[in-house]
């Protein structure tokens, strides 16, 4: 099976600090949900930051094989990916501006101005058609169940709503590869389940998902395959059910707890 992301011998050390990733190998298949589980400080967030090119690896190779990247440039590759963080980081602006943000980044200036003019015109009741960008923002907000929230300010949102906006913002750019770094860790169960459903739907439309999670229940519900990351190394990996039913390493038992495995 071909892979969308291939990672070989990836190492990363913080300047003047200990090595956070110590030789990670990973293959992501197109269209799957792959979970990375592991204790705090195992290197999950560092791994995600290297994979979305926020950090440069100190050694090893990362290969991206996107269908739609126009060229091999860093920016073009990055624009086929998106990431949602554990804590929603929203701009000090309306929900609409937040969801449109990633799209605006990809739109040349004339297009951006056209959208601004359309929105301004509609304020004065001109019957202007919705632009493609606006339609995508609407779709993404509908996807996370926040259709009526466009003009609300990001600061007026609850934590769960803010995370849904962050997810909508990532989905709006229709990424081929979506990084989710413990997206529901700080949310109440209903919000978490809602977000899981959104992730599942996005995955069904073809988005490959790399998920970091503490929540074994969530990993079993969402992921096809998973890997256990401990101290910067992958100590065990495989299809989720196999991994949790018959763990090869003692780490999984320790991490998950005996009772959850049965």
């Amino acid at each position: 099976m071909s892979s969308i992301l291939s990672v070989r011998g990836l190492r990363f050390a913080y300047p003047g600090g200990a090595e956070a990733l110590r030789g990670v190998d990973l293959e992501l298949h197109p269209g799957e949900v792959f979970a990375v589980v592991g204790p705090n400080g195992a290197g999950k967030t560092t791994l995600f930051r290297v994979l979305n090119m926020f950090y440069r690896p100190s050694a090893g190779r990362v290969e991206y094989r996107f269908r739609t990247a126009r060229d091999g440039s860093q920016l073009s590759l990055r624009r086929r990916m998106a990431m949602v963080f554990q804590d929603p980081v929203l701009l000090n602006a309306s929900v609409w501006e937040n969801v449109a943000y990633g799209l605006f980044l990809r739109e040349p200036l004339p297009g951006r101005l056209r959208v601004r003019l359309h929105r301004l015109g509609r304020k004065f009741h001109l019957p202007l058609p919705a632009t493609e960008l606006e339609a995508r923002v609407e779709r993404a907000l509908g996807e996370v169940g926040l259709s009526g929230f466009t003009s609300k300010h990001a600061r007026a949102l609850s934590r769960g709503e803010a995370q849904r906006v962050a997810l909508a913002r990532a989905l709006a750019v229709e990424p081929e590869l979506l990084f989710l770094d413990e997206p529901t860790a700080n949310l109440d169960p209903p919000s978490a389940l809602l977000i899981e459903e959104v992730i599942r739907r996005a995955n069904r439309r073809g988005t490959t998902v790399l998920l970091a999670s503490h929540n074994i229940g969530q990993v079993r519900r969402l992921a096809d395959r998973a890997a256990l990351l401990v101290e910067g190394r992958i100590v065990d990996s495989g299809p989720v059910e196999e991994l949790f039913q018959a763990p090869a390493s003692g780490f999984i038992k320790e991490f998950v707890g005996e009772e959850l495995l049965s």
Binding site: F54, L75, R78, A82, F85, V89, L105, R169, V173
Partner: peptide
């Protein structure tokens, strides 16, 4: 400005200037 804003911008495909 929260340092996380800059990282979020990066993660959504912003160039350096953006």
């Amino acid at each position: 400005v929260d340092r996380a804003i800059s990282e979020a911008a990066h993660a959504l495909g912003a160039s350096r200037l953006q």
